[in-house]
Design a protein around this nucleic acid. Structure first.
Length: 182
DNA sequence: TAGGCCATCTGGTCCT
DNA sequence: AGGACCAGATGGCCTA
């Protein structure tokens, strides 16, 4: 199952069906059709029955207005934060070479490919600079030391990483598997 | 229709 | 105190 390019979605704000119905920030337009609204109401009712517990109202008329306002502002900040995170993911996608440019990489695919791409580049650099080792000018020795330290640190944490020469292989395999849609 | 992926809401915790 | 960060929960969309 692969990620598709789809338009952004918004969920119906929970407050709309609770004590704060009608309170809506200007930048949060009413979402969805009547059907979606009905589905949202139904599912929320079901959630109230057996779903996640929600805190009770803080006063006779439900949550205090200032509390609701803070929550809405917090939601907006959280949304913005997630949008920034997604922008960063998109920027990362754009610098990772992968086979099918028409297919958007999922987040987990992006992170996994990026990790192995970095490792494959590192091993390539090591290979290319090995002719000038040891002790000569250039990035070789320092890079190699750094790489060794990373490997040791990873081992100390119990990681089971392949040897440097295996990273390129792993990266190619991964690209292939993503292309195949596995 | 099930499963994968995602956006959003939410409350708790950490940080400044 | 207020914002950032995090993780759990939930529902929508899409594809096999």
């Amino acid at each position: 199952m692969k990620t598709k390019n789809r338009p952004p979605r918004r969920r119906l704000p929970l407050q709309d069906t609770e004590a704060t119905a009608g309170e809506r920030t200007p930048d949060r337009p009413q979402q969805g059709s009547g059907l979606e609204l009905a589905k949202g109401l139904r599912s929320r009712a079901a959630r109230a029955e057996g779903g996640r517990r929600r805190p009770g109202p803080s006063g006779p008329g439900g949550r205090r207005e200032s509390s609701v306002q803070r929550r809405l502002e917090s939601n907006e900040r959280e949304r913005q934060r997630m949008h920034k995170l997604n922008n960063a993911f998109q920027a990362l996608r754009e610098v990772i070479p992968h086979v099918r440019a028409d297919k958007k990489l999922s987040k987990i695919e992006t992170l996994t490919l990026a990790k192995n791409y970095i490792k494959s580049l590192t091993s390539t650099i090591l290979t290319m600079s090995s002719g000038r080792l040891p002790g000569l000018d250039g990035p070789g020795p320092k890079l190699y030391q750094h790489y060794q330290q990373q490997q040791v640190a990873g081992g100390a944490l119990g990681a089971t990483e392949p040897q440097p020469e295996g990273h390129l292989q792993r990266y190619s395999t991964q690209i292939h598997s993503f292309r195949e849609g596995s």
